[in-house]
Write a protein that binds this DNA or RNA. Structure first.
Length: 496
DNA sequence: AACTGCGGGTCAT
DNA sequence: ATGACCCGCAGTT
Protein backbone atom coordinates (compact mmCIF):
# COMPACT_ATOMS: atom_id res chain seq x y z
CA UNK A 1 0.00 0.00 0.00
CA UNK A 2 1.97 2.89 1.15
CA UNK A 3 5.63 3.07 0.94
CA UNK A 4 5.74 2.81 4.61
CA UNK A 5 3.94 -0.40 4.48
CA UNK A 6 6.49 -1.67 2.11
CA UNK A 7 9.05 -0.74 4.55
CA UNK A 8 7.37 -2.75 7.07
CA UNK A 9 7.16 -5.63 4.83
CA UNK A 10 10.81 -5.44 4.31
CA UNK A 11 11.75 -4.72 7.77
CA UNK A 12 11.81 -7.38 10.28
CA UNK A 13 8.45 -7.16 11.70
CA UNK A 14 8.35 -3.82 13.22
CA UNK A 15 4.75 -4.14 13.94
CA UNK A 16 2.33 -6.83 14.61
CA UNK A 17 1.58 -8.97 11.71
CA UNK A 18 -2.00 -8.02 11.95
CA UNK A 19 -1.10 -4.44 11.68
CA UNK A 20 0.79 -5.02 8.55
CA UNK A 21 -2.28 -6.04 6.78
CA UNK A 22 -5.08 -3.74 6.22
CA UNK A 23 -8.26 -5.17 7.43
CA UNK A 24 -11.07 -4.45 9.72
CA UNK A 25 -12.87 -6.92 11.82
CA UNK A 26 -16.03 -6.10 9.95
CA UNK A 27 -14.62 -6.74 6.56
CA UNK A 28 -16.51 -9.34 4.64
CA UNK A 29 -13.25 -10.94 3.82
CA UNK A 30 -10.26 -11.02 5.99
CA UNK A 31 -6.75 -11.80 4.93
CA UNK A 32 -6.53 -15.44 4.16
CA UNK A 33 -2.96 -15.80 3.25
CA UNK A 34 -1.70 -15.32 6.69
CA UNK A 35 1.64 -16.94 7.01
CA UNK A 36 2.73 -15.28 10.10
CA UNK A 37 0.84 -14.90 13.26
CA UNK A 38 1.16 -12.58 16.12
CA UNK A 39 2.15 -13.79 19.50
CA UNK A 40 -0.72 -13.57 21.86
CA UNK A 41 -1.08 -10.24 23.53
CA UNK A 42 -2.51 -10.26 26.93
CA UNK A 43 -2.61 -6.55 27.50
CA UNK A 44 -3.70 -5.01 24.32
CA UNK A 45 -4.34 -1.37 24.47
CA UNK A 46 -5.10 1.16 21.85
CA UNK A 47 -6.41 0.64 18.42
CA UNK A 48 -4.66 -2.49 17.53
CA UNK A 49 -5.18 -5.55 15.45
CA UNK A 50 -3.60 -8.88 15.70
CA UNK A 51 -3.86 -12.06 13.83
CA UNK A 52 -3.41 -15.10 15.95
CA UNK A 53 -3.13 -18.65 14.98
CA UNK A 54 -6.31 -20.56 15.36
CA UNK A 55 -4.20 -22.91 17.39
CA UNK A 56 -3.44 -20.31 19.97
CA UNK A 57 -5.18 -21.36 23.10
CA UNK A 58 -5.35 -17.92 24.53
CA UNK A 59 -6.82 -16.54 21.40
CA UNK A 60 -9.27 -19.35 21.27
CA UNK A 61 -10.45 -18.37 24.66
CA UNK A 62 -10.60 -14.75 23.74
CA UNK A 63 -8.53 -13.97 26.73
CA UNK A 64 -7.39 -10.60 27.83
CA UNK A 65 -5.61 -9.23 30.80
CA UNK A 66 -8.29 -6.64 31.04
CA UNK A 67 -11.58 -7.65 32.45
CA UNK A 68 -13.65 -7.97 29.35
CA UNK A 69 -17.21 -8.99 29.29
CA UNK A 70 -19.15 -10.30 26.44
CA UNK A 71 -21.23 -7.80 24.60
CA UNK A 72 -23.91 -8.74 22.22
CA UNK A 73 -23.36 -7.18 18.90
CA UNK A 74 -25.87 -9.33 17.17
CA UNK A 75 -23.24 -10.66 14.94
CA UNK A 76 -22.45 -14.24 15.55
CA UNK A 77 -19.44 -13.94 13.35
CA UNK A 78 -17.77 -11.49 15.56
CA UNK A 79 -17.42 -11.80 19.25
CA UNK A 80 -17.41 -8.47 20.90
CA UNK A 81 -16.28 -7.79 24.39
CA UNK A 82 -16.15 -4.59 26.34
CA UNK A 83 -13.93 -3.62 29.21
CA UNK A 84 -15.26 -3.49 32.70
CA UNK A 85 -12.54 -1.32 34.06
CA UNK A 86 -10.94 -1.95 37.38
CA UNK A 87 -12.01 -2.13 40.97
CA UNK A 88 -10.10 0.07 43.33
CA UNK A 89 -10.38 1.36 46.82
CA UNK A 90 -12.65 4.33 46.83
CA UNK A 91 -10.23 6.12 49.01
CA UNK A 92 -7.34 5.14 46.93
CA UNK A 93 -5.61 4.03 50.01
CA UNK A 94 -2.08 2.93 49.87
CA UNK A 95 -1.38 -0.43 51.24
CA UNK A 96 1.21 -0.78 53.86
CA UNK A 97 3.72 -1.85 51.37
CA UNK A 98 3.09 1.05 49.15
CA UNK A 99 0.90 -0.73 46.74
CA UNK A 100 -2.52 0.00 45.47
CA UNK A 101 -5.51 -2.13 45.26
CA UNK A 102 -6.49 -2.86 41.73
CA UNK A 103 -8.86 -5.70 41.50
CA UNK A 104 -10.22 -7.42 38.52
CA UNK A 105 -13.90 -6.77 38.16
CA UNK A 106 -15.91 -9.91 38.15
CA UNK A 107 -17.14 -10.62 34.69
CA UNK A 108 -20.46 -11.88 35.83
CA UNK A 109 -22.83 -9.07 36.62
CA UNK A 110 -24.05 -10.71 39.71
CA UNK A 111 -20.62 -11.51 40.95
CA UNK A 112 -19.52 -8.01 40.22
CA UNK A 113 -22.29 -6.55 42.26
CA UNK A 114 -21.29 -8.69 45.11
CA UNK A 115 -17.74 -7.73 44.65
CA UNK A 116 -18.55 -4.09 44.89
CA UNK A 117 -20.31 -4.57 48.13
CA UNK A 118 -17.15 -5.72 49.70
CA UNK A 119 -14.89 -3.37 51.50
CA UNK A 120 -11.35 -2.49 50.90
CA UNK A 121 -9.37 -5.07 52.78
CA UNK A 122 -6.90 -2.44 53.69
CA UNK A 123 -8.91 0.52 54.88
CA UNK A 124 -12.37 -0.90 54.91
CA UNK A 125 -13.74 1.81 52.79
CA UNK A 126 -15.88 0.95 49.86
CA UNK A 127 -14.58 -0.55 46.75
CA UNK A 128 -15.14 1.35 43.64
CA UNK A 129 -15.48 0.21 40.11
CA UNK A 130 -13.65 2.49 37.80
CA UNK A 131 -15.38 2.00 34.53
CA UNK A 132 -13.50 1.98 31.32
CA UNK A 133 -14.20 4.97 29.14
CA UNK A 134 -11.40 4.60 26.77
CA UNK A 135 -13.31 4.45 23.59
CA UNK A 136 -14.96 7.75 23.05
CA UNK A 137 -16.36 7.62 26.50
CA UNK A 138 -17.42 4.05 26.16
CA UNK A 139 -15.57 1.02 27.28
CA UNK A 140 -12.76 -0.24 25.19
CA UNK A 141 -14.00 -3.00 22.99
CA UNK A 142 -12.30 -6.08 21.75
CA UNK A 143 -13.45 -8.00 18.75
CA UNK A 144 -12.68 -11.57 17.98
CA UNK A 145 -13.36 -13.32 14.78
CA UNK A 146 -12.34 -16.72 13.61
CA UNK A 147 -11.71 -16.89 9.97
CA UNK A 148 -9.90 -19.66 8.27
CA UNK A 149 -6.88 -20.69 10.18
CA UNK A 150 -6.58 -17.45 11.97
CA UNK A 151 -8.20 -15.67 14.80
CA UNK A 152 -8.51 -12.01 14.13
CA UNK A 153 -8.40 -9.63 16.97
CA UNK A 154 -9.17 -5.99 16.92
CA UNK A 155 -9.30 -3.58 19.79
CA UNK A 156 -10.80 -0.16 19.85
CA UNK A 157 -10.04 2.36 22.49
CA UNK A 158 -7.37 3.06 25.00
CA UNK A 159 -7.90 1.95 28.52
CA UNK A 160 -8.12 4.95 30.74
CA UNK A 161 -7.71 3.16 33.98
CA UNK A 162 -5.19 1.04 35.72
CA UNK A 163 -4.88 -2.55 34.88
CA UNK A 164 -6.73 -4.92 37.04
CA UNK A 165 -5.26 -8.18 37.96
CA UNK A 166 -5.01 -10.33 34.96
CA UNK A 167 -7.23 -13.26 34.86
CA UNK A 168 -4.37 -15.53 35.51
CA UNK A 169 -3.33 -13.49 38.47
CA UNK A 170 -6.75 -13.65 39.89
CA UNK A 171 -6.91 -17.33 39.39
CA UNK A 172 -3.53 -17.81 40.90
CA UNK A 173 -4.50 -15.76 43.87
CA UNK A 174 -7.69 -17.59 44.37
CA UNK A 175 -6.08 -20.92 44.22
CA UNK A 176 -3.43 -19.71 46.58
CA UNK A 177 -6.04 -18.53 48.97
CA UNK A 178 -7.76 -21.81 48.74
CA UNK A 179 -4.62 -23.60 49.54
CA UNK A 180 -4.01 -21.37 52.45
CA UNK A 181 -7.46 -21.80 53.69
CA UNK A 182 -7.05 -25.47 53.46
CA UNK A 183 -3.82 -25.38 55.27
CA UNK A 184 -3.98 -26.03 58.99
CA UNK A 185 -1.30 -23.43 59.48
CA UNK A 186 -3.26 -20.88 57.76
CA UNK A 187 -3.58 -17.74 59.71
CA UNK A 188 -6.24 -15.28 59.01
CA UNK A 189 -3.87 -12.59 59.87
CA UNK A 190 -1.70 -13.51 57.07
CA UNK A 191 -4.46 -12.77 54.77
CA UNK A 192 -4.26 -9.19 55.54
CA UNK A 193 -1.71 -7.10 53.97
CA UNK A 194 1.63 -7.68 55.39
CA UNK A 195 3.90 -5.00 54.32
CA UNK A 196 7.21 -6.64 54.58
CA UNK A 197 8.86 -3.87 52.74
CA UNK A 198 11.26 -4.86 50.18
CA UNK A 199 10.05 -8.29 50.19
CA UNK A 200 8.80 -8.31 46.73
CA UNK A 201 11.43 -6.16 45.42
CA UNK A 202 14.02 -8.48 46.61
CA UNK A 203 12.68 -11.14 44.53
CA UNK A 204 14.41 -11.67 41.32
CA UNK A 205 11.16 -11.43 39.57
CA UNK A 206 8.52 -10.20 41.76
CA UNK A 207 5.83 -11.01 39.40
CA UNK A 208 2.29 -10.76 40.25
CA UNK A 209 1.92 -14.38 40.84
CA UNK A 210 4.37 -14.37 43.53
CA UNK A 211 2.89 -11.30 44.94
CA UNK A 212 -0.58 -12.40 44.84
CA UNK A 213 0.21 -15.75 46.16
CA UNK A 214 1.59 -14.14 49.18
CA UNK A 215 -0.78 -11.38 49.60
CA UNK A 216 -4.24 -11.21 50.80
CA UNK A 217 -7.20 -12.20 48.97
CA UNK A 218 -8.51 -9.74 46.53
CA UNK A 219 -5.32 -7.89 46.26
CA UNK A 220 -3.66 -6.92 43.19
CA UNK A 221 -0.39 -5.65 44.20
CA UNK A 222 0.74 -2.71 42.36
CA UNK A 223 3.77 -1.33 43.89
CA UNK A 224 3.72 2.31 44.15
CA UNK A 225 6.83 4.26 44.00
CA UNK A 226 8.32 7.45 43.04
CA UNK A 227 9.67 5.69 40.11
CA UNK A 228 6.63 5.00 38.19
CA UNK A 229 8.29 2.59 36.00
CA UNK A 230 5.74 0.86 34.12
CA UNK A 231 6.11 -2.70 33.50
CA UNK A 232 3.84 -5.26 32.23
CA UNK A 233 2.55 -7.92 34.34
CA UNK A 234 4.21 -10.48 32.32
CA UNK A 235 5.88 -9.54 29.24
CA UNK A 236 5.59 -6.32 27.52
CA UNK A 237 6.81 -7.54 24.29
CA UNK A 238 5.47 -10.19 22.28
CA UNK A 239 8.14 -12.63 22.81
CA UNK A 240 7.03 -15.70 24.47
CA UNK A 241 3.51 -16.26 25.30
CA UNK A 242 3.41 -14.35 28.45
CA UNK A 243 0.03 -15.40 29.27
CA UNK A 244 1.14 -18.86 29.75
CA UNK A 245 3.15 -18.11 32.73
CA UNK A 246 0.38 -18.43 35.06
CA UNK A 247 -0.41 -21.79 33.77
CA UNK A 248 2.99 -23.02 33.26
CA UNK A 249 5.30 -23.73 36.02
CA UNK A 250 8.15 -21.81 34.71
CA UNK A 251 8.54 -19.61 37.63
CA UNK A 252 11.03 -16.87 37.94
CA UNK A 253 13.35 -18.24 35.43
CA UNK A 254 10.77 -18.23 32.83
CA UNK A 255 9.83 -14.81 33.80
CA UNK A 256 13.31 -13.72 33.41
CA UNK A 257 13.49 -15.09 30.00
CA UNK A 258 10.31 -13.59 29.07
CA UNK A 259 10.97 -10.28 30.54
CA UNK A 260 12.14 -7.81 28.12
CA UNK A 261 15.59 -6.52 28.46
CA UNK A 262 14.15 -3.21 29.22
CA UNK A 263 12.18 -4.52 31.96
CA UNK A 264 14.84 -6.28 33.79
CA UNK A 265 16.75 -3.43 35.16
CA UNK A 266 13.91 -2.03 36.98
CA UNK A 267 12.08 -3.17 39.88
CA UNK A 268 9.22 -4.90 38.44
CA UNK A 269 5.82 -3.78 39.08
CA UNK A 270 6.73 -0.43 40.25
CA UNK A 271 3.59 1.02 39.04
CA UNK A 272 2.39 4.28 40.12
CA UNK A 273 -1.10 3.67 41.01
CA UNK A 274 -3.47 6.36 40.11
CA UNK A 275 -1.25 9.26 40.03
CA UNK A 276 -2.64 12.49 41.16
CA UNK A 277 -2.62 13.94 37.83
CA UNK A 278 -3.53 12.77 34.52
CA UNK A 279 -1.95 11.27 31.67
CA UNK A 280 1.16 13.05 31.41
CA UNK A 281 1.95 13.38 34.88
CA UNK A 282 3.37 10.10 35.41
CA UNK A 283 5.64 10.64 32.58
CA UNK A 284 8.23 12.77 34.11
CA UNK A 285 8.94 10.43 36.85
CA UNK A 286 8.77 7.59 34.61
CA UNK A 287 11.11 9.06 32.21
CA UNK A 288 13.55 10.27 34.64
CA UNK A 289 13.75 7.16 36.58
CA UNK A 290 13.14 4.46 34.14
CA UNK A 291 16.10 2.97 32.56
CA UNK A 292 14.31 2.69 29.35
CA UNK A 293 11.98 5.50 29.26
CA UNK A 294 11.76 6.61 25.79
CA UNK A 295 12.73 3.35 24.43
CA UNK A 296 9.85 2.87 22.23
CA UNK A 297 10.04 5.97 20.36
CA UNK A 298 13.59 6.51 20.25
CA UNK A 299 16.78 4.95 20.98
CA UNK A 300 16.45 3.85 24.50
CA UNK A 301 19.74 5.36 25.24
CA UNK A 302 18.78 8.73 24.14
CA UNK A 303 19.21 11.00 27.08
CA UNK A 304 18.19 14.12 25.32
CA UNK A 305 14.90 12.65 24.79
CA UNK A 306 14.42 11.94 28.37
CA UNK A 307 15.54 15.27 29.39
CA UNK A 308 13.32 16.81 26.93
CA UNK A 309 10.50 14.87 28.18
CA UNK A 310 11.11 15.64 31.69
CA UNK A 311 11.18 19.16 30.81
CA UNK A 312 8.08 19.27 28.84
CA UNK A 313 6.12 16.97 30.94
CA UNK A 314 7.05 17.90 34.37
CA UNK A 315 5.77 21.29 33.76
CA UNK A 316 2.52 19.90 32.78
CA UNK A 317 1.69 18.33 35.93
CA UNK A 318 2.81 20.97 38.18
CA UNK A 319 2.84 18.29 40.71
CA UNK A 320 5.27 15.74 41.73
CA UNK A 321 4.60 12.49 40.17
CA UNK A 322 4.94 10.93 43.42
CA UNK A 323 1.92 9.09 44.07
CA UNK A 324 -0.33 9.32 46.65
CA UNK A 325 -0.07 12.47 48.23
CA UNK A 326 -3.07 13.09 46.49
CA UNK A 327 -5.86 13.94 48.45
CA UNK A 328 -7.92 13.12 45.57
CA UNK A 329 -9.44 10.34 47.37
CA UNK A 330 -9.41 11.96 50.64
CA UNK A 331 -12.05 14.35 49.76
CA UNK A 332 -15.48 13.49 50.49
CA UNK A 333 -16.40 11.38 47.73
CA UNK A 334 -19.64 10.61 46.26
CA UNK A 335 -20.36 7.04 45.98
CA UNK A 336 -19.28 5.33 42.93
CA UNK A 337 -22.68 5.13 41.54
CA UNK A 338 -23.21 8.79 41.74
CA UNK A 339 -19.88 9.46 40.32
CA UNK A 340 -20.32 7.25 37.45
CA UNK A 341 -23.65 8.55 36.92
CA UNK A 342 -22.32 11.98 36.66
CA UNK A 343 -19.87 10.75 34.21
CA UNK A 344 -22.58 9.33 32.18
CA UNK A 345 -24.41 12.48 32.36
CA UNK A 346 -21.48 14.30 31.14
CA UNK A 347 -20.78 12.01 28.34
CA UNK A 348 -24.12 10.62 27.69
CA UNK A 349 -25.99 13.78 27.37
CA UNK A 350 -25.63 16.77 25.30
CA UNK A 351 -23.93 17.24 22.06
CA UNK A 352 -20.71 15.77 23.21
CA UNK A 353 -21.99 12.98 25.16
CA UNK A 354 -22.57 10.26 22.80
CA UNK A 355 -19.42 10.37 21.02
CA UNK A 356 -17.78 10.43 24.29
CA UNK A 357 -15.55 13.14 23.31
CA UNK A 358 -14.46 14.70 26.37
CA UNK A 359 -16.81 17.48 26.60
CA UNK A 360 -15.72 20.89 27.30
CA UNK A 361 -15.35 20.53 30.88
CA UNK A 362 -17.93 22.08 32.90
CA UNK A 363 -16.99 22.80 36.39
CA UNK A 364 -18.52 19.58 37.09
CA UNK A 365 -16.69 17.67 34.56
CA UNK A 366 -13.54 19.23 35.56
CA UNK A 367 -14.09 18.29 39.02
CA UNK A 368 -14.73 14.87 37.97
CA UNK A 369 -11.66 14.52 36.05
CA UNK A 370 -9.33 16.27 38.25
CA UNK A 371 -10.32 14.96 41.50
CA UNK A 372 -12.25 11.91 41.23
CA UNK A 373 -10.65 10.56 38.21
CA UNK A 374 -7.50 12.39 37.95
CA UNK A 375 -6.28 9.74 35.75
CA UNK A 376 -8.72 10.36 33.06
CA UNK A 377 -8.35 13.89 32.57
CA UNK A 378 -6.09 16.57 33.62
CA UNK A 379 -6.98 20.10 33.97
CA UNK A 380 -5.34 22.88 32.19
CA UNK A 381 -1.70 23.00 32.63
CA UNK A 382 0.91 25.56 31.89
CA UNK A 383 2.28 23.81 28.95
CA UNK A 384 -0.90 22.93 27.44
CA UNK A 385 -0.76 25.20 24.47
CA UNK A 386 2.53 23.89 23.45
CA UNK A 387 1.47 20.43 23.92
CA UNK A 388 -1.53 20.94 21.85
CA UNK A 389 0.36 22.25 19.02
CA UNK A 390 2.71 19.44 19.15
CA UNK A 391 0.04 16.97 19.11
CA UNK A 392 -1.67 18.42 16.21
CA UNK A 393 1.51 18.29 14.40
CA UNK A 394 1.84 14.73 15.21
CA UNK A 395 -1.51 13.79 14.04
CA UNK A 396 -0.94 15.68 10.92
CA UNK A 397 2.13 13.75 10.27
CA UNK A 398 0.35 10.61 10.86
CA UNK A 399 -2.37 11.61 8.57
CA UNK A 400 -4.82 9.79 10.53
CA UNK A 401 -8.32 10.65 9.73
CA UNK A 402 -10.83 9.46 12.14
CA UNK A 403 -13.74 7.83 10.70
CA UNK A 404 -16.87 6.75 12.38
CA UNK A 405 -16.53 3.50 10.71
CA UNK A 406 -12.93 2.63 10.54
CA UNK A 407 -11.97 2.03 7.04
CA UNK A 408 -9.25 -0.27 6.27
CA UNK A 409 -7.36 2.22 4.31
CA UNK A 410 -7.44 4.93 6.81
CA UNK A 411 -6.57 2.58 9.43
CA UNK A 412 -3.79 1.08 7.62
CA UNK A 413 -2.14 4.15 6.43
CA UNK A 414 -2.14 5.91 9.63
CA UNK A 415 -0.95 2.96 11.39
CA UNK A 416 1.70 2.11 9.01
CA UNK A 417 3.37 5.30 9.53
CA UNK A 418 3.55 4.76 13.15
CA UNK A 419 3.48 1.21 13.79
CA UNK A 420 7.13 0.99 14.07
CA UNK A 421 6.33 1.63 17.59
CA UNK A 422 4.93 -1.71 17.87
CA UNK A 423 6.76 -4.82 18.10
CA UNK A 424 9.31 -3.79 20.45
CA UNK A 425 10.49 -7.19 20.09
CA UNK A 426 12.46 -6.62 17.10
CA UNK A 427 13.28 -3.19 18.15
CA UNK A 428 14.74 -4.33 21.29
CA UNK A 429 16.49 -7.19 19.89
CA UNK A 430 17.97 -5.21 17.19
CA UNK A 431 18.53 -2.31 19.39
CA UNK A 432 18.71 -0.28 16.34
CA UNK A 433 17.89 3.30 16.71
CA UNK A 434 17.68 3.47 13.02
CA UNK A 435 14.76 1.34 13.11
CA UNK A 436 12.78 4.17 14.35
CA UNK A 437 13.81 6.67 11.87
CA UNK A 438 13.34 4.22 9.16
CA UNK A 439 9.94 3.73 10.37
CA UNK A 440 9.16 7.32 10.17
CA UNK A 441 8.48 7.67 13.73
CA UNK A 442 8.36 11.26 14.53
CA UNK A 443 11.86 12.27 15.19
CA UNK A 444 10.71 14.32 17.97
CA UNK A 445 9.74 11.76 20.41
CA UNK A 446 8.63 14.45 22.68
CA UNK A 447 5.85 15.04 20.35
CA UNK A 448 4.26 11.93 21.35
CA UNK A 449 5.19 12.23 24.88
CA UNK A 450 3.76 15.61 25.24
CA UNK A 451 0.71 14.45 23.59
CA UNK A 452 -0.54 13.57 26.92
CA UNK A 453 -1.45 17.01 27.70
CA UNK A 454 -3.35 17.11 24.59
CA UNK A 455 -6.59 16.56 26.20
CA UNK A 456 -6.71 19.82 27.86
CA UNK A 457 -5.52 21.62 24.94
CA UNK A 458 -7.82 20.52 22.30
CA UNK A 459 -10.21 23.30 21.87
CA UNK A 460 -13.13 21.61 20.42
CA UNK A 461 -14.74 18.40 20.91
CA UNK A 462 -14.13 17.15 17.50
CA UNK A 463 -10.62 18.16 17.37
CA UNK A 464 -10.02 16.65 20.62
CA UNK A 465 -11.36 13.39 19.65
CA UNK A 466 -9.73 13.25 16.38
CA UNK A 467 -6.46 14.31 17.60
CA UNK A 468 -6.63 12.12 20.46
CA UNK A 469 -7.46 9.14 18.50
CA UNK A 470 -5.00 10.05 15.93
CA UNK A 471 -2.49 10.25 18.57
CA UNK A 472 -3.47 7.02 19.91
CA UNK A 473 -3.20 5.35 16.69
CA UNK A 474 0.05 6.82 16.01
CA UNK A 475 1.65 6.56 19.32
CA UNK A 476 0.68 3.28 20.55
CA UNK A 477 -1.45 1.60 18.21
CA UNK A 478 0.61 -1.35 18.80
CA UNK A 479 0.72 -3.31 21.73
CA UNK A 480 3.55 -5.29 20.85
CA UNK A 481 5.48 -2.83 22.67
CA UNK A 482 2.97 -2.35 25.00
CA UNK A 483 2.79 -0.84 28.10
CA UNK A 484 6.08 0.62 28.47
CA UNK A 485 5.51 2.60 25.54
CA UNK A 486 2.01 3.37 25.72
CA UNK A 487 1.35 3.82 29.29
CA UNK A 488 3.77 6.37 30.29
CA UNK A 489 2.21 8.64 27.90
CA UNK A 490 -1.29 7.95 28.35
CA UNK A 491 -1.55 6.73 31.65
CA UNK A 492 -3.30 8.76 33.83
CA UNK A 493 -4.08 6.57 36.44
CA UNK A 494 -2.76 4.11 38.13
CA UNK A 495 -0.26 1.84 37.14
CA UNK A 496 2.40 4.04 36.29
C1' DA B 1 -20.06 -19.90 42.10
C1' DA B 2 -18.21 -17.76 38.48
C1' DC B 3 -16.99 -17.59 33.68
C1' DT B 4 -18.25 -17.56 28.94
C1' DG B 5 -20.83 -17.21 24.80
C1' DC B 6 -25.28 -16.69 22.74
C1' DG B 7 -29.09 -14.18 21.48
C1' DG B 8 -33.53 -11.65 22.40
C1' DG B 9 -34.62 -7.29 23.50
C1' DT B 10 -34.50 -2.04 24.51
C1' DC B 11 -32.83 2.49 23.91
C1' DA B 12 -30.47 6.31 21.80
C1' DT B 13 -28.38 8.28 17.89
C1' DA C 1 -28.78 0.92 10.74
C1' DT C 2 -25.69 0.96 14.38
C1' DG C 3 -23.85 0.59 18.89
C1' DA C 4 -24.27 0.18 23.87
C1' DC C 5 -26.28 -2.27 27.21
C1' DC C 6 -29.51 -5.34 29.93
C1' DC C 7 -31.08 -9.78 30.74
C1' DG C 8 -31.67 -14.74 30.84
C1' DC C 9 -30.14 -19.18 29.33
C1' DA C 10 -26.98 -22.88 28.96
C1' DG C 11 -22.59 -25.06 28.95
C1' DT C 12 -18.11 -25.00 31.10
C1' DT C 13 -14.59 -24.44 34.64
Amino acid sequence: MSKSSDQFDNSDCVCSFGMKLTWDINDPKLPQDTKQYDAFQEWTDGYVRYIYSAEDKNAQRHLSGWAMRNTNNHNCQILKKSCLGVVVCSRNCTLADGTKLQLRPAICDKARQKQQKKLCPNCSSALELVPCRGHSGYPVTNFWRVDGKAIFFQAKGVHDHPRPESKSETEARRSAVKRRMASPHFSQKRRLVEPEPGRYHDMPFPNIHQLTMETPDRFSIIAESNFPIQTQHYTPFQNTEPYKFPYDTHGPTAMADAASPLQKPSNHRLYMARPPCGYDFAVPGYLSSAPYPTALYKDPASPPCEAELNKSCSGLSGMPHTTSSLPNHERSYPDATTKHHSWKQILGKGPYGERGEYPQLSANANHYYNTEYPCRYTGPSPNTPTALQTIITTTTKVSYQPCPKPSVVKYGESIYDMKGLSNCNSVLEETSPNTYSDLKIPEDSSVIKTALSYQDAVPTKIERTENFEGYRYSSYSSNSCPERLAHPYRYEGGEY
